[in-house]
Nucleic acid binder design. Structure first.
Lengths: 357, 357
DNA sequence: CTGAAAGCGCTTACAG
DNA sequence: CTGAAAGCGCTTACAG
């Protein structure tokens, strides 16, 4: 039975929180209404007189009442829990994703359950299945590669669990997603390098499973061709978005004899690896060679020289995906708003690219 | 009513998960026992015959039964939810913390709720209070600065919510914690620089609220004094663990005229900032100046030159804190194991420190 | 060692 | 627009 505090509210730095355990019954009694009416007010349902609503809200405040999630979840068959499933990767990226999701979830009263998986996804599907059922997730946010993994999407569709994607795949309209035009940004970045006088431009591809890798590479190729520059096979090397693969790619490009004057890495971690290789060979950047990345991860500003790159609005992508997810959760039945969104990509010019030598 | 699947189990890549919604009653019926017995098996309680246990486990498997968290939580007054509250900071650090906590939580059947806060913690306490009550958290993991914020600890003690700390404060034994000897590691690192011939060693302090900052600085001072080197006031500058403050600190040290031949930054982000300033002044590292950090964050290997630093076992710190928390949650009443743990810190020698010029 | 009853704190579905 | 009853799927406390 929750005690009722009168007078000062339990504001900041008050340690008296232990009496916040009043229940819906306490509120109802205090307000002189039925628990059903309290429930209506909590859930913002229509059909409550303003007077009633006010009375109840007052009582809620006086009791320090906080609805119990488990009880709501059990009775209402929803958990107010959103799941975030992803493959372990760049911590800057995933931290921003989390921030974006949380920014939106919290204000809507949802909590976030995070579930990272290792790269070798042997048992991902059964594991996800278990979590979804045990925790009764209301919905899920997916980032690449998971957001592009058809079997996983099929599985979620199969159990009718709502989800929203952050993805570079824009032709699969089965469910809400937020995306950027990676092709176009890579195209523009390549054009930028060409405008700087570069023609022998090396490219380090991202992880082949990620659609962003395909798009970025295609943008590079298209820009080269648009300028009438042949893409020699030894201009392009395969990476996997990791720093180490950037080192390997940089080494290959630098030592191939292709004489590249610029390297476009498909993300910043790989650009950092290529940069390291260039430093190791005593090259001065950008005087001897230009190196650019993609993402605008935390590291981009911390390297020497700071990376010219493409800014991906990661936090915003996640926030919008959450907005789409939560809006699809409200079964208002109202006409759904458009369930796809495209966010802009911006080229950030810093210090690592300059005129061709 | 959950349907029962016979024959093949719903293994990987099977999309038939939707019938995993059987309840404890289904299991009881199938096994021919009471639901209480099923409950006993789920919760690993003693006093169940082997035969019973086997029968129930069989039925659980045949139903694809997964206990409903909300129901368990409501009836059992525990949520199987662990909260992770922290101030937004270096993403490499927090990602490792999450990984460590999750590694332990999952295998014990707990889920993780993450709650980052901005730096200006106006309303942190009320916010935490709300989450704790709404989600019925069983326990909390705290990292610096929160783990060293006495008002927060007092609050959690007040509401009797179990928590474990990752912290550099080792003299507050009120609750479980895992720690490292920052003083000693900073002492050894400074000794290492001195052994390399450096005497004019600059130091960039960390955020004053963090006890690690105090400890690391004290270790530096002690080592200098042990070698009979006076710590000139212009050897030391105040940072706050951010990259930008490292730039400012590096600039101050480089331009002060103190003629430092080495800079010891209290973490890797600040070392990266100082490194950037050195590069900007066309200094060759480590020939002209040595720069070392602390933490062994992701960035340490990605910089040029790669950072000599102190490896902090962040993931392990979090895993052990979770272990302490969960063990304190089991009210076995058995004699508690020791609730403090000290993990070793290791100096990682890479490329950014060399002999004094 | 096993089970029948009561109840956790809410929401659903139905009356009025 | 408001409310009394039933029930969500478990665990607790108590018998036997």
């Amino acid at each position: 039975m929750g005690r009722i505090k009168i007078g000062h509210k339990s504001g900041a730095a008050t340690a008296s929180a232990s009496d916040a355990n009043s229940t819906i019954k306490d509120v109802a009694r205090l307000a002189g209404v039925s628990i059903k009416t309290v429930s209506r007010v909590i859930n913002n349902e229509a059909n409550v007189t303003e007077a009633m609503r006010k009375k109840v809200q007052d009582a809620i405040r006086r009791c320090d009442y906080v609805p119990n999630r488990s009880a709501r979840s059990l009775a209402g068959r929803r958990s107010f829990l959103i799941g975030l499933f992803y493959e372990r990767q760049n911590s800057s990226y995933i931290t921003r994703i989390q921030a974006g999701v949380l920014a939106y979830c919290r204000q809507e009263g949802y909590e976030l359950l995070i579930h990272p998986f290792g790269r070798g996804n042997e048992s991902v599907l059964p594991e996800i299945e278990k979590v979804v059922h045990r925790s009764n997730l209301d919905g899920v946010i997916l980032t690449p590669y998971f957001s592009e993994w058809v079997q996983l999407l099929d599985f979620l569709d199969g159990i009718k669990l709502p989800y929203a994607r952050v993805t570079a795949v824009r032709d699969d309209l089965r469910s809400p997603f937020v995306s950027c035009d990676d092709f176009d940004a890579a195209f523009r970045m390549t054009k930028y390098l060409i405008a700087l006088g570069h023609r022998r431009i090396g490219f380090i591809k991202g992880h082949p499973r990620h659609n962003s890798a395909t798009e970025r590479h295609a943008g590079y190729v298209a820009a080269m061709e648009a300028e009438g520059i042949a893409v020699s096979p030894d201009f392009v090397t395969q990476g996997d978005y990791s720093f180490v693969s950037g080192e390997a790619g940089g080494r290959a490009l630098l030592d191939s004899g292709a004489g590249v004057t610029a390297i476009f890495a498909s993300n910043d971690d790989m650009a950092a690896g290529a940069l390291r290789m260039a430093h190791q060979r005593k090259l001065v950047i950008p005087d001897d060679i230009s190196i650019v990345g993609f993402d605008d991860a935390d590291i981009a500003r911390k390297l020497w020289p700071a990376l010219t790159t493409v800014r991906q609005p990661v936090r915003e992508l996640a926030a919008q995906a959450s907005a789409l997810l939560i809006s699809s959760l409200r079964e208002d039945g109202q006409e759904q708003e458009k369930m796809q969104r495209l966010l802009p990509l911006e080229i950030i010019i810093r210090e690592s690219a300059g005129r061709a030598p």
